[in-house]
């Protein structure tokens, strides 16, 4: 039997129905929780909730900790990525495995490990405390370290991937033109892996912002000092559902805004 095709439909091939249904279901995994959040939002109380001390404190701690962790990840993670991408040394694959371990390790385990290493009685924490008086747990530094531990792998693997894909002849060309190592790095290498770098920073920051398990284990849950937005949500779920929803909304709005802006700026082609 001949199948008839309307002239208006000739141009577009209809996508397979099963695929579209599954795709819509896939999308609903993300959308339905958001709808649930919006449905429970106490819109009239929102201004009061958003300006409450708990929320503002948590927002401040989260912003400082996530940006701090991103900055530390950039300063330490880019060189680490460079070494992994460019220098062959024995045990490189083991080092690479250690670097990505926090991606699969339960964050609580990471937090515990940090406590054993950097806690007041920790392997390094104790002598450090005796020498300098520094204490990481229950301080903003603890929050930053916990966030860095779980988030930096995103930066290292993205930047390393960018470096591996960069044709080494560009750096060679720069060298023959008289550019020293640093000039090559700043003017050729980093700009040329710009989109990997931006993606890595965005992922790192997003992961740091959402960090929960390692933070609560290592840095504790002190409002105004170590209580980040996710921790505040967790506490509020027990006591004040309205505040929990308000805090969650803040995180959704911040994350979505940053990701959309970055996507527009850096990943236009994606």
């Amino acid at each position: 039997m001949t199948k008839r095709v309307k002239s208006s439909d000739r141009r577009k091939r209809r996508p397979p129905v099963v695929l579209v249904i599954l795709a819509v279901l896939g999308l609903s995994v993300f959308v339905i929780p958001l709808l649930g959040l919006l449905a429970r939002t106490p819109w009239s109380d929102l201004p009061t909730l958003l300006t409450s001390d708990v929320v503002l404190d948590a927002l401040r701690v989260s912003v400082i900790a996530s940006l701090g962790a991103t900055a530390i990840s950039a300063v330490l993670g880019i060189p680490l990525a460079w070494v992994l991408a460019r220098i062959e040394f024995p045990g490189r694959s083991i080092v690479r495995g250690i670097v990505v371990l926090p991606l699969v390790l339960p964050p609580v385990v990471g937090g515990a490990a940090l406590l054993f290493a950097l806690g007041r009685r920790g392997l390094i924490g104790e002598p450090l405390n005796e020498m300098t008086g520094l204490v990481f747990p229950f301080s903003i530094w603890g929050v930053i370290i916990a966030a860095t531990f779980v988030a930096m792998p995103f930066l290292v693997i993205t930047v390393e991937g960018g470096l591996r894909n960069l044709d080494p002849r560009y750096e060679g060309a720069a060298a023959t033109l008289g550019a020293g190592r640093w000039t090559v790095l700043w003017r050729v290498t980093l700009p040329m892996i710009g989109s990997s770098l931006a993606a890595g920073l965005a992922l790192t920051w997003a992961r740091a912002l959402g960090e929960f398990g390692a933070t609560i284990t290592f840095a504790g849950n002190l409002q105004g000092r170590t209580q980040t937005l996710p921790l505040a949500v967790f506490v509020a779920m027990e006591s004040d559902r309205g505040a929990a929803v308000a805090l969650s909304l803040i995180m959704v709005v911040i994350s979505l805004t940053v990701l959309i802006v970055l996507r527009h700026r850096w990943w236009g082609a994606l």
Partner: peptide, 30 residues
């Protein structure tokens, strides 16, 4: 970088993130 050898590479290897004039002045700036 200390040899002073001008190389025209295969496929030219111009820096794609720089403009034409930035490419040409790169050696002088370095």
């Amino acid at each position: 970088e200390d040899r002073s050898i001008g190389v025209v590479f295969q496929d030219y290897v111009l820096f794609p993130h720089m403009t034409v004039v930035e490419n040409v002045e790169f050696g002088l700036r370095s």
